[in-house]
Amino acid sequence: MKITVALYAGLKARALAPQGASEFDLDIPEGSKIGDIIKLLDLPDDEVANIFVDRSIKDREFIVKDGQRVAFFPLIAGG
């Protein structure tokens, strides 16, 4: 199944992502958890602090469904 991945604020996928892209489509096996996608992309796990799936906060255990949008952020703040 296919999902859309968005990476922000310096997070870079070290695998499977088109060179330099911050947003891309990704094929993943059915039943993948967010934690699996982090591994698949070889994201720096300890830097991933906030994850949104279709605009809602989720954790690493969440099972992603076909067509969903998953956004990853490191720890950031502002105001």
Binding site: A9, F73, I76, A77, G78, G79
Partner: peptide, 26 residues
């Protein structure tokens, strides 16, 4: 702290680092 340290989030991207996260949060 990751947010306030040298080369941390605020230092690297400014406060506007929030635009994308608020957008992703709807």
């Amino acid at each position: 702290h990751a947010v306030t340290k040298p080369k941390g989030a605020l230092n690297t991207y400014g406060t506007a680092v929030l635009v994308n996260i608020l957008n992703e949060a709807g």
